[in-house]
Simulated assay, not measured.
Amino acid sequence: MSERQALIIGASRGLGLVLANELVRRGWHVIATTRQEGGELRENADAWDGRLEVESLEMTSPEQLAALRERLSGRRLDLLLVNAAIDRGDLPIGEVPTDMFVEVMVTNALSPLRVLEALGELVVPGGTVAVMSSEQGSVSRNTEPGYELYKASKAALNQLVRSYATRNADDGRTKLLIDPGHNRTRLGGPDAPLIPQESIPAVADVLESQAGVPGLRFLDRDGETVPW
């Protein structure tokens, strides 16, 4: 059986970094992107003896995305996962500056879909196209105040992935939106109840178990359906 190939967009730290290492431990060959030189991802790549590759990408740059697509020409992926996202704090939506609104929406909703459009064709039929979403993007579960812009960006992401899945329903690829839970990362904050080293192995289990299952699913780290 040939080595499974994964591309993780946004793996310099946090969930993406832990997932890259987890997949390598499971026997995958992983290509992981970062916006910066050096750092822990590069150190991990050196330690994994060629099984973890590092690529440079600013996800919001169409030019950099096109350049990455060119560099990966001819590669075939079993998994493409977009992890990169940002949060700009807990302002009520009426106090959010327009430039902040645009920045968060472009990063969290528009740019992941640009990645899927540019790189999705590298995923083999039977492979998986996945995006790290959040329960915060569930409209039906939005019953507590706070983080309105982040919630809106994840809801927009979910809707756009739904549109992508509808347009590509017959391509033979699994499509997933993954809610990894509230993790103790730079984005999730120091008081989050989960740590990536505990939650990400469960996420990897979901990614592996869902491979080859047709259609789009919005699942949490335990493989349970998250309501839209």
Rank of each mutant, 00 (worst) to 15 (best):
V102K: 07
L110T: 01
D90S: 11
L79Q: 09
A84E: 02
A109C: 06
I93L: 15
N108C: 07
L110M: 03
M105F: 04
P97V: 09
L91S: 14
V82F: 05
A109E: 01
T98N: 00
V102E: 03
M100T: 15
V106G: 00
R88M: 15
I86M: 14
I93A: 09
N108E: 07
M105L: 07
V96G: 12
G94I: 08
D99G: 01
I86K: 09
F101D: 05
I93G: 04
V106C: 00
L81I: 15
P97K: 10
L80P: 06
A109I: 02
P97H: 11
A85N: 07
V104L: 06
V106H: 04
D87Q: 13
M105E: 01
I86G: 05
L110W: 01
E103F: 00
L91I: 05
E95R: 14
A85H: 06
L79A: 09
G94E: 14
A109R: 04
F101P: 04
N83L: 04
E95L: 14
T98R: 13
F101T: 11
R88A: 15
A109L: 03
I86T: 13
T107D: 03
E103V: 04
T98P: 00
I93S: 06
V104Q: 14
L81S: 02
N83I: 06
A109V: 00
L110P: 02
G94C: 07
G94R: 14
V102L: 04
I86Q: 08
D90N: 15
V82Q: 06
V106D: 03
P97D: 11
L110F: 01
V104W: 01
A109K: 04
E95A: 15
G89V: 12
L110E: 02
V102R: 13
P97W: 08
F101C: 10
P92H: 10
N108V: 05
E103I: 06
I93M: 15
G94M: 07
A84H: 03
T98I: 09
A84Y: 02
M105G: 01
N108P: 11
R88F: 04
F101L: 15
V96C: 13
A85R: 10
G89D: 13
P92I: 12
L80K: 13
N108W: 06
D87I: 08
D99R: 15
L110N: 03
V104T: 13
V106Y: 00
T98S: 13
D87P: 00
E95M: 13
V102S: 03
A109Y: 01
D87L: 10
V82Y: 05
L91F: 06
A109Q: 02
L80V: 11
A84K: 05
N83P: 09
G89Y: 12
D87W: 14
D87T: 14
M100C: 05
T107P: 07
P92F: 08
L79T: 10
V102C: 01
L91V: 02
L80M: 12
V96T: 15
T107A: 12
R88V: 12
L110V: 02
L80E: 03
A85S: 13
A85T: 09
L80S: 08
T98K: 10
A85L: 08
T107Q: 06
L110K: 02
P97G: 09
L81F: 05
A84N: 04
L81P: 05
D99I: 07
V106Q: 05
F101V: 10
V96Y: 07
N108S: 03
L79M: 11
L110Y: 01
L80W: 09
L80G: 05
D90K: 09
I93F: 11
T98V: 14
R88H: 14
V96A: 12
